[in-house]
């Protein structure tokens, strides 16, 4: 965590959700809401102006939904901003598609404020999955339904990198992986970075999706 506060952009078609979130998040010292938007299209404009670190994105909105807006943001710059999808229900059909479009994680709107703030920090830092258990289950449940299992199309990973990817897909954080594999955190970080690079994944969530979609997790487990 750096000294500068995280810059947040709130995107939701309901102004009450936005104003509520704004007050909740602004009460944290390390978070600052730099803008809000009511539609996906508006979100793209505001994001270009206000340069947020993390975008809190609703999925179902009129005039470009959160999935399309996420895809557009990712296409514009794969590094920044990260997108945290906010959803009303965890079994939302759109959730997986939002992750596939490049969102880094998701959180429930009804989550405890502290959990929400945690999720934002995790997304900004990228050292573990947001809601690891839910994310992993969501991806594991959605991938086989959408795509028939293909041949393992992952690029060549070293044995160690494959181990790390398997644990990342299991929802473990860098620290936990370091404990599991008896490595230092820095080494794990290096392995994770090289896995992300080889998979062309922008973050862990995308790496997990790739791991499941390629059939890597089926052959591994």
């Amino acid at each position: 965590m750096t000294g500068a506060p995280l810059r947040l952009l709130l995107v939701d078609d309901d102004v009450l959700v936005r104003s509520g979130l704004r007050v909740i998040l602004e009460s944290e010292a390390d978070l600052r809401v730099v803008g809000d938007a009511g539609t996906g299209q508006e979100a793209l404009d505001v994001a270009a102006r206000s340069d947020p670190d993390v975008v809190l994105m609703d999925v179902r909105m009129p005039d470009m939904d959160g999935i399309a807006a996420t895809a557009a943001l990712v296409a514009r710059d794969p590094r920044r901003p990260r997108v945290l999808v906010l959803t009303t229900f965890e079994d939302d059909d759109y959730l997986f598609r939002a992750l596939q479009a490049g969102a880094s994680g998701f959180a429930l709107k009804r989550a405890d404020p502290d959990e929400l703030v945690d999720a934002i920090r995790i997304v900004a830092r990228g050292s573990s999955l947001v809601l690891p258990e839910l994310t992993r289950r969501l991806i594991a449940a959605q991938v086989p339904r959408r795509r028939p299992r293909g041949p393992a199309a992952l690029p060549d990973l070293t044995v160690r990198e494959a181990d790390v990817l398997r644990l990342v897909a299991g929802g473990l954080s860098n620290a936990e992986i370091a404990g599991q594999l008896h490595l230092s955190r820095e080494t794990v970080k290096t392995h994770v970075s090289s896995v992300l690079l080889k998979l062309c994944a922008r973050d862990r969530t995308q790496a997990v999706i790739a791991a499941y979609e390629s059939g890597f997790m089926d052959t591994a487990g």
């Binding site: 309901d14 009450l16 959700v17 104003s19 509520g20 979130l21 007050v23 909740i24 709107k109």
Partner: peptide, 18 residues
Amino acid sequence: IGHALTASLLQATAARRT
């Protein structure tokens, strides 16, 4: 209903914080 309850929840949470 999901939407309305969510918005109400967030408003209530925020109000309590203030």
